[in-house]
Design a protein around this nucleic acid. Structure first.
Length: 878
RNA sequence: GCGAGGGUGCCGGAGUGGUCAAACGGGCUGCCCUUAAGAGGCAGUAGCUUAGUGCUUACGCAGGUUCAAAUCCUGUCCCUCGCACCA
C-alpha cells in the first residue's frame, strides 16, 4: 500500500485550521510560550531555517500534549537595508538580482513589481505562511505581523522600547570605527564588498616622540608593550612628510596618514610639508627617558602606519636586521652625517623573559631561519607572525617594567600588561588610539575603503557595567537547551560593547528622540515577543490611543490605563515570560544576548526569559549549505517531494545538541514505506484475545520504559534521541511482539498503538492523526494527553528468547545438514519461559524440545546440558 | 590570536571508568520469498578462531593515572562556529 502523504497531510492541515487547534486563548491551564525568531522576508523558507523552526514546533506540540496552553506565534522581519537594496537593484535591472528572482519562478512582469520594497515583504511573507502551513507547523496565525513603519502599531511599540532604554540611560550618543567607502560616504558591511571580506578596523597605538623643538614624531604599533625596547626611529629621507597641528600639538606624519587621521576625528588644523631627511640624525625622547637617534630607511612605505617607525631590535627581526645593515653601511652613515660611534653603539635592549629563548628573541629567530639579509622578505614575513604570537603568549615582562607604570609589570603576561600600559600612557597623553584596516577592502563602488570614526551615532550601551550585571543575573535564571551553551553566553555578555543602533538607510522605525535616524534591525527585535501577546487584539484599537501610557500600562502595569486596555494587559500577564526561544548558534553573540539584556533592562524580573534553545547549522548530505553548491532546499520543495512528516522527522533526526544537523536524503526516502507499515498497524487494533501472558506483560513494560525515556528526551529537546526511541526502538519491539505471539492480546495491543500514536504526534502529526482516525478515535490526536505509564522492574526475558534463536540459527549455518529438531537444556526456573516460546521457534525456525537440566529423562547424547548458564541454554541439534 | 564546541566503524552517529568490537539508522555483501520488478524476512560487514565460542588489535596522535580507559589527566595536531553594526 502506497502512503499517500499529499492527501493525508492536506486533509489534516485543513481540519486543524477549521478546529482552530493552535489558536491560543487564555484559560485555567498553565501556559507555555514558544518562539522562533522572526525571519527576514527577502526570501522564502528553506532547509537552513527548518531545523531551528522544527525544534520550536516539536516542543510546542509536545508541551501542548503535556497539558500546557501553548502559544506559538510567528511574525516577519522587514527592518534593515537588504530588501531596499534588492528592490533598488531590480530598478537598476542588475542582472544577478533579476536572475535570482527568475530562479524563484517569477515572470518578468512580476519581477517589475519587486522594484517596490513592500512587494518583497508581501510576497515572501505569504510564501513563509503557506510553506509553514504545508509543513504542519502549529502556529497561531492571528498574531502574525510585520515590523517597520509599515505596521504603525509595532512602530509605536518599538519607539516605546527605545524611550524606556533612554530613560535608563542605556541609549546614548558616541563614536565608533567603521569600514567606510569615501566615494558613497557610507559604511561598508561585509556583504557589500568586492574584496576584503572579514577585514575589520584594528586598534593601533600611536606613539608620540618629542623632538627637542617640541614637535612630535608619530609612529604606529600593535605592540605598545615593547616600548621599553625602543632603540631608535626610522624615517624615509626622500619622502615629504606633513607637519600639522593636531589638538594643540605639532605632529610629523606621512600624507596618507593625515587623511586617515582626519577621518578618525583628529582635529587637523594647519599643515606644511617637510622632507624626511630633515629629521635624520636628530634625536627624540623615548619612553625610558633616553634620547634616541632617528635613522634613515628607504624601505618605509608612507601608506603603512604613519610612514615612520620606531625600532625594537630585541623583539622584531625586521628591526634587528635593518639596524645591522645600517651599522655596516659606512657610506650611508657618511651621507647623512651621522655619528659613526653612536650608530654602532645601538644595541638591542632585552625587555621580556621568554621560556626557551636565551638572549633576544629576534636574534633567536634570525638564527633559526638562517636569515642574513633584509631581502629575504618571505622568511621575514613568516617570522614576524611567529615571533609576535610566540612572545605575545609566552613571554613575561622583565625588570625594566618593574617601575614607571601604575603597577609593577615584572613577571606579568604581555596581554595583561599591554592593557595597563595603554591606560597609563593614554592618561599621560603620550599615545593616541588609532584604527587601521586589517587588510585591503574594496567596496561595490570599486573604491578602496578606509576606517572612519563615526560620531553622532546612537548606541545601546551594552558596555554598561551595571547592565551587564543584570544580564548575568537574568542568565542565571534561564534554562538552556543544551546547557553547554551557557558558558558562551557568559562570555558574550562580558565581551559585548556598545552597539550602534541608528541607521540612515533602509526600512524601520524612527528613533523617537532623534527622528533623523532609523533603528537598526537587530535592535528592534529584542523584546518583540511581548508584542505577540497582544498582536491580534491591538489592531482593534485606534492608532491615536497607542502611546507611551498605553504600553506602560500593558507591559509594566504603570498608571491607571483605560478600562478597555485591560484585555491586552491580561494577555501579556498571562503569556509572559517567554518559556522557550530557539535559534541557530550564530545568534548567540548578538540577537539572543540582546534579548537577555533588553528584557533585564525593561521588564520586571518575573518577565525575564525562562528558556533558550540553541542549535547547529544545517548540512545537506554532510556538506555545508552554500549558494555556490546550490544545495539549499526550499521548504515547499521538501513538502512536495517527501511530504511534511518525512521532512520533519528527517531534519530532527539529523542531529541534536550543538551538532550541525545533517539532512540525509536516504533516510527521508526510506520513510515512506515505514510510514505505510506504521499505518498498517491499525489492522490489529481492537482484535485478539483477552488472556494476558508473560509476553504481553513484557511488551507493556517495554512500552512504559521507552515512553519514559522518550519523555525525558523531549523535556530536554533531545529530539533525535526521542525519535530513535519512538520510531526505531519502540517500533521494532512492537514488531517483535507481533512476530512472537500467535495471537495478540486485545487490551495490550490497543494500549501499545494508542501510546505509539500519541508519542509520534510532535514529529509526524499528520501520520499520527490518520492513524488515530483509522482506529476509530473521534478527537484530534494533536490535543491528546501525553502518556504516562508506570515503569516496573522487570527482567528482559525476550533477550534470552531472541538469543536462543540466534544461537540455533548460527549452529544450523555451520552444520552441513539441516537439522529437524533442537533439543534445548535450560535451568529449571527458565523452563516455562522457553516452553512458552515453543510455537514461536517452530513457526520461524525449527521445533524445539526444552528440558530442564535436572530432568533425568532428558535426551542428551552429547551431554550439552553440562555447559548451561542462566540465559544460556545448551543446544543439541539433530 | 581570543571565546565556544568537536574528532569513534564504509557513512551519519550513540556511548563519558569495567556489562564495549561498540546502541540506533544507512550503505554494501550473501541467503530466503517472488515469473520479474518492488517490497519484505534473515545473516554478515577489524583480524584470527569455534557447533551458539574464545582471543588479538582498535575509538585523531603521543604520553600518564588505574587491577581496569573510547570514557580521567597532560601535551600535541586537526575540524566547525563566532569575533559585531550585518540579517
Amino acid at each position: 500500500m502506497k502512503y499517500n502523504f499529499k492527501k493525508i497531510e492536506s486533509k489534516w492541515q485543513k481540519k486543524w485550521e477549521q478546529a482552530k487547534v493552535f489558536e491560543a486563548e487564555i484559560d485555567k491551564r498553565k501556559k507555555f510560550f514558544i518562539t522562533f525568531p522572526y525571519p527576514y522576508v527577502n526570501l522564502g523558507p528553506h532547509i537552513g531555517h527548518f531545523f531551528s523552526l522544527m525544534r520550536a514546533e516539536a516542543f510546542a506540540r509536545y508541551k501542548r500534549s503535556r497539558g500546557f496552553n501553548v502559544l506559538f506565534p510567528q511574525a516577519w522581519h522587514a527592518t534593515g537595508s537588504p530588501i531596499v537594496g534588492a528592490a533598488n537593484r531590480v530598478k537598476e535591472k542588475e542582472p544577478k538580482q533579476i536572475v535570482a528572482l527568475r530562479k524563484e519562478g517569477f515572470s518578468d512582469k512580476e519581477i517589475k513589481k519587486f522594484e517596490d520594497p513592500e512587494h518583497w515583504i508581501k510576497v515572501f511573507g505569504k510564501q513563509w505562511h503557506n510553506d509553514l502551513n504545508k509543513m504542519g507547523i502549529s502556529i497561531d496565525w492571528r498574531r502574525n505581523f510585520i515590523t517597520t513603519s509599515l505596521n504603525p502599531y509595532y512602530d509605536e511599540f518599538i519607539r516605546w522600547q527605545f524611550r524606556k532604554l533612554k530613560e535608563k540611560n542605556y541609549v546614548g550618543k558616541g563614536e565608533h570605527p567603521v569600514v567606510w567607502d569615501p566615494k558613497t560616504n557610507m559604511p561598508v558591511g561585509d556583504h557589500d564588498r568586492v574584496e576584503g571580506e572579514g577585514e575589520i578596523p584594528q586598534e593601533m597605538i600611536l606613539f608620540k616622540f618629542k623632538l627637542d623643538d617640541g614637535r612630535k614624531i608619530i609612529t604606529a604599533t600593535l605592540r605598545n608593550d615593547t616600548l621599553m625596547g625602543i632603540t631608535n626611529l626610522y624615517i624615509h629621507p626622500d619622502i615629504e612628510y606633513i607637519e600639522t597641528k593636531i589638538n594643540g600639538e605639532i605632529w610629523i606624519v606621512s600624507e596618507p596618514m593625515l587623511k586617515k587621521l582626519e577621518n578618525q576625528n583628529f582635529n587637523v588644523q594647519e599643515r606644511a610639508r617637510v622632507k624626511g631627511s630633515e629629521f635624520v640624525g636628530r634625536k627624540v625622547e623615548s619612553f625610558n627617558g633616553n634620547k634616541i637617534l632617528i635613522l634613515p630607511a628607504i624601505f618605509l612605505d608612507p601608506k603603512v602606519g604613519s610612514g615612520i617607525v620606531h625600532s625594537v631590535p630585541s623583539d622584531s627581526a625586521d628591526d634587528l636586521i635593518a639596524l645591522r645593515d645600517i651599522q655596516k653601511d659606512d657610506n650611508l652613515i657618511k651621507k647623512y652625517n651621522l655619528d659613526l660611534r653612536e650608530v654602532k653603539l645601538i644595541k638591542p635592549i632585552e625587555i621580556f623573559n621568554t621560556p626557551g629563548i636565551e638572549g633576544n628573541s629576534a636574534q633567536f629567530y634570525l638564527d633559526k631561519y638562517c636569515i642574513k639579509s633584509q631581502n629575504e622578505k618571505e622568511k621575514l614575513e613568516k617570522i614576524r607572525k611567529e615571533l609576535y604570537t610566540f612572545t605575545f603568549s609566552k613571554s613575561t615582562f622583565n625588570k625594566l617594567y618593574s617601575k614607571g607604570f601604575s603597577k609593577n609589570l615584572e613577571g606579568m603576561s604581555i596581554s595583561k600588561g599591554q592593557e595597563i600600559i595603554k591606560k597609563d600612557l593614554l592618561k599621560k597623553k603620550s599615545i593616541e588610539v588609532f584604527y587601521e584596516l586589517t587588510g585591503k577592502v574594496v567596496s561595490r563602488s570599486l573604491t578602496e575603503c578606509i576606517v572612519k570614526v563615526v560620531s553622532d551615532q546612537w548606541f545601546i550601551r551594552y558596555g554598561d557595567e551595571k547592565w551587564k550585571k543584570d544580564a548575568h543575573r537574568a542568565l542565571k535564571k534561564i534554562k538552556f537547551y543544551p546547557e553547554s551553551v551557557r558558558d558562551q553566553f557568559e562570555y558574550v555578555i562580558d565581551w559585548l560593547k556598545d552597539w550602534a543602533c541608528s541607521r540612515e538607510y533602509g526600512l524601520g522605525t524612527k528613533l523617537p528622540f532623534d527622528e533623523n535616524w532609523l533603528i537598526e534591525s537587530l535592535s528592534d527585535s529584542t523584546i518583540y515577543m511581548a508584542y505577540y501577546t497582544i498582536a491580534h487584539k491591538i489592531k482593534t484599537f485606534k492608532l491615536s490611543e497607542i502611546n507611551e501610557k498605553f504600553f506602560d500600562y500593558i507591559f509594566l502595569g504603570k498608571g491607571k490605563g483605560k478600562k478597555k486596555w485591560r484585555v491586552l494587559k491580561e494577555e501579556f500577564e498571562y503569556w509572559y515570560p517567554v518559556d522557550f526561544r530557539n535559534s541557530g548558534k550564530d545568534l548567540v553573540q548578538n540577537h539572543l544576548t540582546f534579548f537577555i539584556f533588553n528584557h533585564a533592562a525593561i521588564f520586571p524580573e518575573k518577565y525575564w526569559p525562562k528558556g533558550i534553545g540553541v542549535n547547529g547549522w544545517v548540512k545537506v548530505e554532510g556538506q555545508k549549505m552554500s549558494k555556490s553548491i546550490g544545495n539549499t532546499i526550499p521548504l515547499r520543495v521538501m513538502a512536495d517531494k517527501f511530504g511534511a512528516d518525512a521532512s520533519r522527522l528527517t531534519i530532527l533526526n539529523g542531529g541534536e545538541g550543538m551538532d550541525d544537523p545533517n539532512w540525509d536524503s536516504m533516510f527521508v526516502k526510506n520513510l515512506e514505506k515505514r510510514f505505510s507499515s506504521m499505518l498498517g498497524l491499525s489492522k490489529y487494533y481492537n482484535k485478539g484475545i483477552n488472556e494476558k501472558r508473560e509476553i504481553d506483560r513484557w511488551i507493556e513494560n517495554k512500552l512504559a520504559l521507552h515512553t519514559k525515556k522518550a519523555t525525558e528526551f523531549m523535556e530536554n529537546t533531545l529530539f533525535r534521541s526521542a525519535i530513535q526511541k519512538i520510531y526505531f526502538e519502540l517500533y521494532s519491539d512492537i514488531n517483535w511482539y507481533l512476530k512472537r505471539v500467535d495471537k495478540i492480546n486485545k487490551k495490550t495491543f490497543n494500549k501499545i498503538l494508542e501510546t505509539f500514536t500519541i508519542l509520534m504526534q510532535p514529529f509526524t502529526p499528520h501520520l499520527a492523526e490518520e492513524l488515530w482516525n483509522k482506529i476509530g478515535k473521534k478527537k484530534i490526536v494533536s490535543l491528546e494527553k501525553w502518556p504516562e505509564l508506570k515503569v516496573k522492574e522487570f527482567e528482559d526475558t525476550e533477550e534470552k528468547v531472541r538469543k536462543l534463536g540466534e544461537d540455533i540459527r548460527q549452529i544450523i549455518k555451520l552444520l552441513k545438514k539441516k537439522p529437524k529438531k533442537a533439543y534445548v537444556y535450560v535451568l529449571p526456573q527458565e523452563l516455562k519461559m522457553y516452553q512458552d516460546a515453543e510455537s514461536f521457534y517452530t513457526r520461524t525456525l525449527i521445533p524445539i524440545i526444552p528440558f530442564a537440566v535436572n530432568d533425568k529423562k532428558k535426551y542428551d547424547p552429547e551431554n550439552k546440558s553440562k555447559k548451561v548458564k542462566p540465559g544460556r541454554p545448551g543446544i543439541y541439534l539433530e
